[in-house]
Write a protein that binds this DNA or RNA. Structure first.
Lengths: 249, 249
DNA sequence: CATCGCTGTTACAGACTGTTACTAAATCAT
DNA sequence: ATGATTTAGTAACAGTCTGTAACAGCGATG
């Protein structure tokens, strides 16, 4: 039911654990680095900074974003435990990274990383794979921003959150949303009000219910997936759909 | 005046010509390949196809796009002479590529490309640089789609077209627009009507004038750049601005 | 335990863009 | 050259999303 695809930034915690031995994945390179702490709201790096380090997220969530001239902010993605950030090639970071909650990361110097990659050719496909995933995610986001309406955007977002770190509990899937509504809005190209309104409607239709401020319980994943507009999903819950009015574009 | 930055897909025609000698850039790898022709409207490859080849555009323009479930199309970029496409890592193309006009390309097998890269380490930074440019372009597009209004989108698009292949002629810059209005609309996340309306307004304000169907003459580049919303530009034509009403997000 | 403050929600007027329909222009074919 | 077909531009209308504002809820603070 909870297929995992389009993983944002390479996530490999479990795979790494299975083969506990040698570095067969990028995360292994960080294993020996000390863990650093970052309080909620603090920046890991800024857009335009010299990209001297790469980071592996050990715990917590971060937002990566760009600020444009008049102060508008565009969040290009969220990072979770297991993600690696900073592989961004070139000499400067393309975006800023900021802790949403208290975060623990491991830091690796870019030079050390490059050396490892050079000496361990098996890792190169992994780097490419990572970049490819990032590229695919960016393209999916362009599709979302180009021609999805508010409901589709919110459903797509929630679906991705589920696919990344799903927690089945009782009836429905518990989804953690550590970021604020403003973060979600800036990520989806909407306003906080529209995000709120949309989630309220989804609640009224029995598709989800809120669990505190930073979590929701998804009761009808099939419907949610359908409403997301990516018709890759054809589960057995299709009959659940109550109202599929989607005014595209 | 016409600064070149955020070039979409690596463009190196002129640089390659300066140093006529050995492969110091990716384009050189294609030099010995035969030229293939593609008629307007024909596809070079489809999204999901096994990515067996890379292509260098010798002449003409192509659109790269994704089609989603209900038939909506998202154009993620345009290709011009000098561009290389298909470095898309992974085994499958992330998008489809289609000739806008009659096109000439050189084809290179992925295996041959990989072999060249492996044997000629100096090229690897170039590959990374290429991917980085593509990533940066994707992020710029996300910014555009996230929080720019119709006018800013159109101006951004025109500005990029100018920066890529500018032709100064008489008073103003002649900009070729080989693609249709629908292409532009699908690229900017708008409809053809909105594109038309916006360009009409720009014409009425004396910022540009149309030259046939597939070209325009930009009369006030400074104003255009300002209206694009990327405030990187502060030229000497700022005084030209007549009306900067932009209802941001 | 009460108050303050921030975040999130709801309501409503308004703006921008999308939709539809029609006209004009340019390209292609005969 | 002339007519048919495709593409582009224009206008009226409708719809979604926005932006402002007031309200509610949760957490923090004292």
């Amino acid at each position: 039911m909870l297929q995992t695809k389009n993983v944002y930034h390479l996530k490999g915690g479990t795979n790494a654990a299975v083969f506990g031995g040698e570095p067969d994945c990028l995360q292994a390179l960080f294993k020996k680095q000390p863990v650093e702490h970052l309080a909620a709201g603090q920046s890991l790096f800024y857009e335009g900074d010299i990209a001297k380090h790469l980071f592996e997220v050990v715990e917590g969530s971060l937002r990566i974003f760009k600020i444009i001239s008049d102060g508008r902010r565009v969040i290009t993605g969220f990072l979770q435990a297991g993600d690696i950030v900073g592989v961004s090639l070139k000499n400067h970071y393309l975006y800023s990274a900021e802790a949403i909650v208290d975060v623990r990361v491991r830091r690796l110097a870019r030079k050390a990383f490059d050396a490892e990659i050079a000496s361990w050719p098996d890792l190169r496909p992994e780097v490419f794979s990572h970049l490819c995933d990032e590229m695919a995610a960016a393209q999916d986001q362009m599709v979302l921003l180009s021609c999805k309406n508010a409901e589709e955007r919110v459903c797509t977002f929630l679906r991705k959150q589920i696919e990344r770190g799903a927690g089945l509990q009782g009836n429905g899937v518990l989804v953690e949303l550590p970021m604020t509504r403003l973060d979600i809005a800036d990520y989806l190209g909407l306003t906080i009000e529209t995000v709120s309104r949309t989630m309220t409607k989804l609640t009224q239709r029995g598709i989800l219910c809120s669990v505190g401020r930073h979590a929701i319980r998804v009761l009808k994943y099939g419907v949610l997936a359908q409403l997301s507009g990516d018709d890759e999903y054809y589960g057995d819950e299709r009959a659940q759909i109550s109202y599929a009015g989607a005014n595209h574009h």
